[in-house]
């Protein structure tokens, strides 16, 4: 028996209430993240990655809420915690980085103050101490001249700089888990690589676990050992990254990989066009009753339409939810 994982999500359901109706946006999602591990969550836009992440720190807003399931953090169920217990975890033990560095920071406060808040909130620092610690935190995310930069307002910084500030905020209290929701999607490619490297270094040093969310399998391949594939609110496959790239099991994963441009490959294969997955992610109200990928799937048979496939174990804690996987 290995040690229990840091975070264990069991059968998570996220509902959306509209009037009397209750729609299952996220259904039966389970995965776990070990201490120091970086877990990837991949899927097209609108598949429920962000709301799954938000549910972990109790930040879902109406009309969304957790329907059932368990979110165990160090063995404690976050869904059973009261407001102040959750607030003590948020930012302190579990923190989050968002996609949009342009709007994620308060435009009217200096970045120094926004970092310093963390020390005031969670370490009982005075503002004076906290602002000194903020300079150190900014230095750690490799912002040059941090003692001057703390006095900057967000609009005086580039997108990459702001995302560094977000990382400084998120890692200020040395959390156990960092949730990074598409942290580099809004950035230039060159900046992307720097930010990812920085996150990886800092989290490795400190043994921080990461939930890395992206729609970019390339990013995931670089950062993670294990990965979960999400489609329309279902976790359809969970694998070790190496296996996933070599032998994708779910038709959706196949599609995702086929749509990846591989450097040099296109000229070799006589300019074979990139394979797009036909169709789009259905809207919440139009989710099929069976496998949610069925309408876009080339392998679909009648059984796919009627019942959601259960997990087929592939060994080593991996699974796929498909009747026709392989």
């Amino acid at each position: 028996m290995s040690a229990p994982p840091l975070l264990e999500i069991k059968n998570l359901h996220i509902d959306m209430r509209s009037g009397q109706e209750r729609l299952n946006v996220v259904e039966n999602v389970s995965f776990s993240i070990g201490a120091g591990e970086t877990f990837g969550l991949v899927g097209e836009s609108g598949c429920g990655k962000s709301i799954t992440a938000l549910s972990l720190i109790g930040l879902l807003n109406r009309p969304l809420s957790v329907g059932q399931g368990e979110i165990l953090f160090k063995g404690q169920n976050l869904l059973k915690m009261n407001g102040s217990e959750l607030r003590r975890l948020r930012g302190n033990r579990i923190s989050m980085i968002f996609q949009e560095p342009m709007t994620a920071l308060n435009p009217l406060a200096t970045v120094g103050r926004q970092i310093a808040e963390m020390f005031v909130l969670h370490q009982g620092s005075t503002w004076h101490e906290a602002e000194r610690k903020a300079i150190a935190a900014l230095a750690q995310v490799q912002v040059p001249a941090p003692d001057k930069r703390v006095k900057n307002y967000p609009h005086q910084m580039s997108g990459g700089m702001r995302q560094r500030v977000m990382i400084a905020i998120a890692l200020a209290c040395h959390p156990d888990l960092l949730i990074a929701d598409e942290p580099t999607t809004a950035l230039d490619v060159t900046v992307q690589a720097e930010i990812l490297k920085l996150m990886q270094e800092l989290c490795d040093q400190r043994g921080t676990s990461v939930l890395m969310i992206s729609h970019d399998l390339g990013v995931i391949a670089k950062m993670c050992r294990r990965v979960g594939i999400m489609y329309a609110g279902h976790l359809v496959e969970e694998r070790a990254v190496a296996d996933l790239f070599r032998h994708p099991a779910h038709p959706y994963t196949h599609g995702l990989l086929a749509s990846l441009p591989v450097l040099g490959q296109r000229t070799l294969d006589e300019r074979k066009p990139l394979q797009e997955i036909e169709g789009i992610v259905p809207s919440i109200a139009a989710f099929p009753t069976g496998c949610r990928f069925e309408p876009r799937c080339t392998r679909a048979t009648p059984i796919c339409r009627d019942t959601v496939p259960g997990p087929s174990i592939l060994g080593d804690g991996s699974f796929v939810r498909c009747y026709h996987h392989g």
């Binding site: 930040l59 959750l86 975890l89 949009e100 994620a104 920071l105």
Partner: peptide, 10 residues
């Protein structure tokens, strides 16, 4: 968005 960030700070 920055209000969501603030809430995520606890």
């Amino acid at each position: 968005d920055f209000i969501r960030t603030a809430r995520s700070k606890g």
